[in-house]
Design a binder for these strands. Structure first.
Lengths: 198, 198
DNA sequence: GCCTCATATTGAACGGTGTTCAATATTGCA
DNA sequence: TGCAATATTGAACACCGTTCAATATGAGGC
């Protein structure tokens, strides 16, 4: 049997990815344990380090999946968006972002909670996924602010993403400003509506 | 000497508070170690647990100081603000918030990074400090949106705080959307200016 | 001042974590 | 089939926050 060993490696990679994703989704990133993973995967603890650099690497792989799903959720929300105002488009995307974060809170949190040791440790796909989100936002923005130059448009794009991200983050965090989901939706709508003059 | 023992306890509380604050400010919350604290304070590791419930309790005490300083920084920024538009007031407060976060990044991060195990673990002063910040925001907001009812005003207040918080958070985080400080200031100004119709 | 006992302080030990690497088992090939 | 090369293992390591039996110190009555 050719490739047996590398095939098994790849299978273990997938298995660990699935298990880690399920465990993070269910119990949160902080509850992820190497020994638990090994037991559920039916392998030794050392085996994890054969197929991933460390637990961070495994979590990064989970984040890759999560980011892709997040991008799809946002992208789907503006399929066939003809006939809607750019402000409406922004609101619908933001609500999709909120919906994804609310339904996958632990996985979504892991996207931002994972510590990246150095600057260059941020993988390419991470920045690309982020830039795709930015691109979604920039499109309706040029319609709302046609006279903004490229620099300011980029700043405004990042500012709006950060704003919505902040509202979602603190809104889902009970201790800070926890409110029911419909109220968070309204907060987003209030801020984004005021962009185009009320 | 009367009170010797309880006086010494209080002195140790203060000493540990100062040391913990300095260490968090310098190396970040994640680098705080019980054994390091004990060594620098010249006490045993167990002594920490005589005057604080656990390390979380100590960090909460540090956060109390930080929150107070943050409140002062924001409050000072709108001293004698007569003659300025409400939008300008919002911008100045937000820039003060950004300035504090930029100059005390690690301490400011600890305010939000510390895990609170249960819901009721959030101390009163934490919510009060937060409500004070909200009050600062609400005042200029009623001028900008006089016809907003109390519920929407409250939502708008929290939404704006969260927005600025999001811009500052991601702006200071290199991997996500790290940009120079003046650009973060501009992002805040762009979003807040658009509130009152460009 | 001194003895006594209640109280405060200590730091080695405990249970837990992520990670490693010498020892073992397995594979793929002549 | 035999054997070198490789893959896998899990006990051991370093380090963490936290505890608690043992020790040292305190304060009050004589």
């Amino acid at each position: 049997m050719a490739q047996t060993t590398s095939t098994r490696r790849e299978a273990l990679r997938q298995t660990l990815l699935d298990i880690a994703e399920a465990r993070i989704a269910h119990n949160g990133l902080a509850a992820l344990r190497a020994r638990d993973l090994a037991q559920e995967a039916g392998c030794s603890v050392g085996a994890i380090y054969n197929v991933y650099d460390d637990l961070n690497g495994l979590v990064m792989a989970v984040n890759g999946r999560t980011f892709q799903a997040l991008g799809q959720a946002v992208g789907n929300s503006i399929k066939d968006d003809d006939g809607h105002s750019p402000t409406d488009t922004l609101i619908r995307m933001s609500h999709a972002y909120l919906g994804f974060a609310a339904e996958n809170t632990n996985l979504w949190r892991a996207l931002f909670d994972l510590e990246m040791s150095a600057d260059s440790d941020v993988p390419d796909w991470y920045m690309e996924a982020l830039n795709q989100l930015f691109a979604y936002i920039a499109a309706p923005l040029v319609q709302i602010f046609p006279d903004l130059d490229k620099t300011d448009l980029d700043l405004m794009t990042r500012a709006l993403f950060s704003s919505v991200h902040g509202i979602v983050t603190l809104g889902l965090e009970k201790r800070i400003s926890g409110v029911p989901l419909p109220q968070i939706e309204r907060m987003i709508a209030l801020v984004l509506s005021s962009l185009s003059g009320k």
